[in-house]
Design a protein around this nucleic acid. Structure first.
Length: 717
RNA sequence: GCACCCUUAGCUCAGUUGGCUAGAGCGUACGCUUCACACGCGUAAGGCCAUAGGUUCGAACCCUAUAGGGUGCACCA
């Protein structure tokens, strides 16, 4: 027996050694497995893509969970003999990364608005590359057995080309348009967003009743009302029956006399306020729709930075957040304030990143028509071509797909994939232009310039399943698409999962994956969300250093059901550290008692008792295999834990002591083979969960013709 | 407002298609250095499975209602 078993298991001196053993073996690469004969060339394939990691920081506990679950799946499938590919990748993560970088700039006293775009891009690229090296070493530390030789980055030229082709295809199929539409605009970040990037926040604010000629209008935002020249009411509202659609009324308003026009529209809720409102089409989606329906003028009141334009008269140039009180005071002096409701509760749309109030703006942006894509996806989901774990995510997805809005895919940031298009200077029309050929606007003949915007990062990551496998003609795409499992965070089910299904289906005609496994959040030990400001962020590397990667992995997976969040406490990880050590000591006992005894694969001289124990283990492993097949890793892990400690160690091992001391030769032989057999099978079954310690113990077993444990056969049926 | 989820031991959570005495980890109490392991061993305490009805031979599990907690979506100025 190796002398190291006389001391407790030491992860620090083991893990790096074992990982490089795996890497050198080439077994992460399915082609290599076939080449050296551990996998049959015609074996069934299994493919899972690692959600491309945001290359803007370092790994957090959530990544630890992703790497653990996905590695468990991968190792299990590989041991089952499948040609198993787990493809790693990195995401440039457009806006997310730019925000992180802007914070860094802020600390240095700089802002992105003073850096030439090309220079900024270069800076962020350097930043990303530095981070990604860091991230990759952390992923290795978690024990991830992904195929590094196939690693992809969302900015790889081949990926970008695929994204461009999809953009052009959408255009050719009439699913892409550039429109002057109202978009959600963050004045701080100075970019537009899709509807998913908006966070609703309930606020209690004042609600103002203002005199508008013969009417009283209600508003929570008097500072936007300078240009309001349309007054809208419901056509069926009897209170205002005397006013006709299109009727002009002269009245006194904030900065002097104006002529207002009466509009009748059914969008008005007669119950709300006074049943009359004025509209600000440039800065409100509902107002915009009304203006579109009636062909009304739209005027910009607030600029992109949130400051009032000249139309605001004396208030021009001031930031809207500062002038509300001043404007209300002016209105009050003019006698236009009727009353103020102090406790008006409503929902304000804010930037999910910085919490700044969204100021809608009318802008020309690229939109994808989502309905046709969503309908096809919905059909596949209902047919169970994509299966959700946990199940209820299917309903949530169907609800979202059934009510989908068009997707604004352009962002006014430099960090991202540039949109390959030309924009007409004169009329604003846009043209998809992959080959940089267009020089004149086909509509008005005006000069065109390059589109300076970039794609929403989700537009590229939604194409990840086929793009990363080399669509359309690489062998990997043919072998591995459509993939088997998509394992990711429940949080990004709309952002990413649903869009992957839609775009995958649209571009390749096939759903991109058969099963979606969604995990929940990793919370701190008290069940609170981790955040830098609370100071409760758990760094995975600290935990692997303190307890060992195997213990950390067990702590992340046992008791963690899909879709629900997990409270991760050090106590729990400590428990699994002890378990890993227990396994170490079990091995020490077995090795001591079976010194110089080789494991016999097809041993047939069992005692009746040992035969029963062997069958008991087989039953357990069958059970565990069922759990693995059904993604119940939390159960499989717990069952193996329980068996190893409370059955094998506490009972089987204890009882064996007597036999090994007092039994006949046959009984001793049978018992030794049993101990070796159980240990071997247990190591195999536990390997996906705790790969390092099992591989290390395995290396000390006396088994003729054994390979690395990572490619041994899974012991259950 | 609509949808979805949750409520089980002091804490964090399992409990698969309804079926033995409802489980685990941590924690707690008491006792053990027993020749694999004190990162250990043994023993014990601790639960009206949110509440009220219903279905059933049988319910933590299925149905209905209620209460509390959470999440997502949609919004009216």
């Amino acid at each position: 027996m190796d002398g190291k078993f006389l001391k407790p298991y030491d992860p620090a001196s083991t893990e790096d050694k074992i990982y490089s053993l795996w890497e050198k073996s080439g077994f992460f690469d399915p082609d290599q497995c076939v080449k050296v004969g551990v996998t049959a060339p015609d074996a069934e394939t299994f493919c899972m893509l690692m959600p491309p990691t945001n290359a803007n920081g370092s790994l957090h506990a959530g990544h630890g969970l992703v790497m653990t679950i996905e590695d468990i799946i991968t190792r299990y499938q590989r041991m089952r003999g499948k040609r198993t590919l787990w493809l790693p990748g990195l995401d440039h993560a457009g806006f997310e990364t730019q925000v992180v970088y802007e914070k860094k700039l802020e600390k240095e006293g700089r802002t992105r608005f003073e850096i030439p775009p090309a220079d900024l891009y270069k800076e962020i690229l350097d930043f990303t590359l530095t981070n990604s090296a860091n991230i990759k070493s952390q992923v290795r530390k978690m024990g991830a057995s992904c195929d590094w030789s196939r690693e992809k980055f969302t900015l790889d030229p081949a990926i970008v080309r695929t994204v461009y082709n999809t953009f052009a295809k959408l255009s050719a199929d009439g699913l892409l348009y550039r429109g002057k539409r109202i978009v959600s605009w963050c004045p701080k970040h100075q970019t537009s967003f899709s509807d998913l990037e908006i966070k609703d926040e309930e606020r209690t604010e004042k609600f103002y009743y203002l005199k508008y000629g013969p009417f009283t209008i209600g508003t929570s935002r008097p500072e936007t009302k300078f240009g309001d020249k349309y007054v809208v009411m419901h056509p069926a509202d009897k209170r205002y029956a005397q006013y006709k659609d299109g009727q002009k009324i002269d009245l006194e308003w904030i900065n002097g006399p104006i002529t207002a026009t009466v509009i009748k529209d059914e969008a008005i809720d007669m119950e709300f306020g006074t049943g009359v409102m004025t509209i600000t089409p440039w800065h409100d989606p509902v107002d915009f729709d009304i203006a579109e329906r009636h062909g009304l003028d739209k005027e910009q009141i607030i600029d992109e930075k949130g400051k009032l334009l000249p139309i605001a008269g004396e208030f021009a140039g001031q930031h809207i957040s500062k002038v509300r009180a001043l404007i209300v005071e002016k209105l009050r002096v003019k006698g236009l304030v009727e009353k103020i409701d102090e406790n008006y509760k409503h929902v304000v749309r804010t930037c999910y990143k910085c919490g700044t109030t969204i100021e809608p703006q009318v802008k020309s942006q690229w939109f994808v028509k989502m309905k046709p894509l969503a309908e096809k996806a919905l059909e596949k989901i209902k047919n169970k071509e994509v299966v959700y774990i946990p199940e209820h995510y299917e309903k949530i997805t169907e609800h979202w797909l059934g009510n989908i809005m068009d997707w604004n895919i352009s962002r006014q940031i430099v960090w991202g994939i540039p949109i390959p298009a030309k924009i007409c200077e004169k009329c604003g029309e846009g043209y998809v232009d992959l080959d940089n050929k267009i020089t004149k606007c086909a509509k008005c003949g005006g000069e065109v310039r390059k589109d300076n915007d970039t794609f929403d990062t989700w537009f590229s990551s939604s194409q990840w399943p086929f793009a990363s496998l080399g669509f359309p003609d690489s062998p990997d795409f043919k072998n591995y698409y459509s993939t088997d499992v998509m394992e990711t965070a429940g949080e990004i089910i709309f952002f990413w999962v649903s869009r992957m299904i839609m775009l995958g289906l649209y571009v390749t005609g096939e759903v991109p994956f058969a099963t979606v496994y969604l995990h929940g959040l990793v919370l701190d030990g008290k069940g609170q969300k981790m955040s830098k400001s609370k100071g409760n962020v758990i760094n995975p590397l600290d935990l692997t250093a303190k307890f060992g990667t195997d213990a950390f992995r067990m702590g992340l997976v046992v008791g963690n059901t899909p879709g629900t969040s997990l409270a991760l406490s050090e106590d729990k990880i400590t428990a699994y550290k002890k378990f890993v050590n227990k396994l170490w000591n079990i091995s020490r006992f077995v090795f001591t008692e079976t010194e110089n005894t080789a494991f016999v694969e097809d041993f047939d001289s069992w005692t009746a008792d040992d035969r029963k124990l062997e069958e008991e283990l087989s039953r357990l492993l069958t059970d565990v295999t069922t759990d693995m097949e059904n993604f119940r890793f939390y159960m499989a892990g717990e069952k193996l834990y329980h068996y190893a400690w409370h059955r094998f160690a506490d009972v089987i091992l204890e009882e064996s002591k007597k036999t090994l001391k007092e039994g006949t030769e046959d009984e001793k032989n049978s018992k030794k083979q049993l101990l070796l057999l159980i240990l071997a099978k247990l190591l195999k079954a536990l390997h996906p969960f705790i790969p390092f310690v099992t591989e290390e113990i395995w290396s000390c077993m006396l088994i003729p013709g054994k390979r690395l444990l990572i490619v041994e056969k899974w012991p259950g049926k």
